[in-house]
Amino acid sequence: MMEATLDMTTVAKVNTATSGGREEFSHTISGTIGKPYLDGKDAKFFCRDVNVFYSGDKQAIFDVNMDIGRNEVIAMIGPSGCGKSTFLRCMNRMNDTIEGCRVTGDIRLDGEDIHDKEQDPVLLRARVGMVFQKPNPFPKSIYDNVAYGPRLHGLAANRAELDDIVEQSLTKAGLFKEVKDRLQSPGTGLSGGQQQRLCIARTIAVSPEVILMDEPTSALDPIATATIEELIDELRASFTICIVTHSMQQAARISQRTAYFHMGYLVELNDTKTVFTNPQHQLTENYITGRFG
């Protein structure tokens, strides 16, 4: 009974927020709690006042500020529709591909403004790779899937180099042993978990600096999920990884820092341990204790 009442109040607050606008909301969420900035340290990604609007005035992200460090795994969690995926897609300008989507604010990769006129989305996406929720191998062979990026970007001078990149990427993604005898068979013929690792291999074949992962394991079974999680942990040595996840356990297992999004706001960003053991904000606590989401 007690819990149910609590739940009601949260919902009520959120509801006032949506109908009443930002003014009333701010007494619930006043800026981001925790440590959104990497003071003094050199951030890989630097995001200030990021707002995202969809077709017209529908706002999906409100004034998000955060830094993302080098070689860290940062997890973004929050209830469905909270904007975590939308925010993730800002970082390699994938939102450009959505009609009517507009991003404002300052996002820098290694100090370069990614929205700068000089900045090229193609180059940006080569530097900031992305793995999607549903494994989406291209309708090509396993080899061609991995070679897709290197071929596009002219990363290999000859066939031998390309073979090398493909083998290394598949090895890093932990897939090479399983598929080395059937590199020419279609990538769509693999199991779900293998497909997702193929997509990861495809992404790292371009040697990006950052890998964005949008709920990479939500379509997979627990065993495949465990394999991918191990893989992410290994990849941390070479890449910065931002992962959006639905599973709080996953965030706790693999990330160093965790960001909690709620209705388009970044509510709390802190060390993963702190977020899960001692959340500062009521909404975060409600979420991680399973009251909603």
């Binding site: 989305p121 193609v122 080569a126 790779g129 992305m130 999607f132 549903k134 989406n136 309708p139 897709y148």
Partner: peptide, 27 residues
């Protein structure tokens, strides 16, 4: 052709025409 296919290609840094020629048309 599912949007995921396009996203995958754009996410790799392909231009639109590369995506169309190498992913969408084969698919």
């Amino acid at each position: 052709v599912p949007q995921a296919m396009r996203d995958g290609s754009y996410g790799m840094g392909a231009t639109k025409s590369e995506t169309i020629k190498q992913v969408i048309i084969p698919a």
